[in-house]
Amino acid sequence: MSNLHPQVLELLASLSTNPPAQPWEVSIAAYRAVGEKLIGLAGDLNPHCDVRDLEIPLRGRVVKARSYSPKGATTAMPGVVYFHGGGFVRGGLESHDRLCRELSVQGALRVISVAYRLAPENTYPSAHADAIESFCWVADRSDELRIDGEALAVAGDSSGGMLAAATAAILSARTYGASVKAQGLLCPVLDLTSSSDSVNRYGSAPLLSRAALEWCIDQYVPDVGLRESPEVSPLFSTNLNNAPPALIVNAEIDPVSDDASRYASKLQASGVAVVQREYAGMPHSFFLLAGVVDEGKRAITGFAEGLSRLLR
């Protein structure tokens, strides 16, 4: 295994006295509570952001969402519909609040963060349906939300990165009345069959091991036969010709690192413009450690600026 960055090693040492439990060792509620205790590692709240909570009415249900805008912004601007990570099992508006604030302020973007339904209470295709329908809801109300309807991206990290990629591919291939101009993927999980070489190479990596990854996949897609579907494993898509331009960020020391590079290559082979950056010595979801890991801050800045360029 390549060397982890010194700041990551320092963080891991500080956590070693009370290491987080493996997800299968505790209840779902306890596992989610552990995640909430780590939110502070993302850093201080950016005060230059206007934030308000929303409810998105979908077919037979309502999902919670949160809108972010640069403080005082009154005119329409490019927008991003964001899906949080958390292995399909945990995470939500609070876990990614700091990240979404930074994306909004640093990218001059209106960001809508969506709290899709979680597994194991809600298995596939629940989160997918929430993601696609929420994007369409935002697109339909772009004027009301002061978003430039011709400059709307989808983005997400980890499991949310898969939902973002799936949403971009599905809306590009079918007619839903919503257009995705760009897609932004942070450490995306794009192959639920775990066939990337990095799954073995970094199977014992910190923050996300192969065992934890596969446990999370089991919670959301318990039917193994569905895992080669392009909707849950975008790497199995056979036609990405109409996919929107992509900005992809991956961490080196991460079981899903190769998912990102494989997908970037597949998009490029389909004629889709792609910008990809790998961060050396970083573990999965390192951008959520921006309060203690400098590369996390740099990744967020680069991601925000990159999305802004794709949308303008």
Rank of each mutant, 00 (worst) to 15 (best):
S159I: 11
R117N: 03
V180T: 00
D97N: 12
F286W: 06
Y176F: 11
G43K: 03
P57K: 04
A269M: 04
M162R: 12
R66P: 05
I56S: 06
N241D: 10
A166D: 08
D223P: 04
W137A: 08
A178H: 00
L207E: 10
A243Q: 04
F88Q: 07
Y176Q: 07
V114R: 00
V249H: 05
A127K: 03
R146F: 09
S308Q: 05
P78E: 09
S198L: 06
A165L: 03
D157L: 07
L4T: 01
R32A: 12
L192G: 01
E150Y: 02
Q219P: 03
G156W: 05
S198M: 11
S196W: 03
A29G: 07
V232K: 00
N241G: 12
G43D: 00
P244H: 00
L9A: 12
A129E: 13
A76D: 13
L11H: 03
D191C: 10
S27Q: 05
A13C: 00
W215N: 06
D197V: 10
Y279P: 02
D259V: 11
L267P: 01
S179Q: 12
K181C: 12
L289A: 13
A139P: 00
V63Y: 08
T75F: 14
L192E: 03
G160H: 02
I248D: 01
A131R: 04
T301N: 12
Y31P: 00
V89N: 07
G85N: 12
A30K: 11
I28T: 14
G296I: 09
A33F: 02
G184F: 02
L38C: 00
F287R: 08
S113F: 04
S204Y: 03
P125W: 05
S134E: 02
W24D: 14
S14G: 06
R312S: 15
P47I: 14
A260D: 08
S204R: 14
Y202A: 10
C100F: 04
G92A: 07
R277W: 11
A243S: 15
E55L: 04
L54H: 04
R90F: 08
P125Y: 03
L288N: 13
D44Y: 06
R101D: 12
Q219K: 13
G302K: 06
G87N: 11
I132V: 15
L145K: 04
S158P: 00
Y68H: 03
E150W: 03
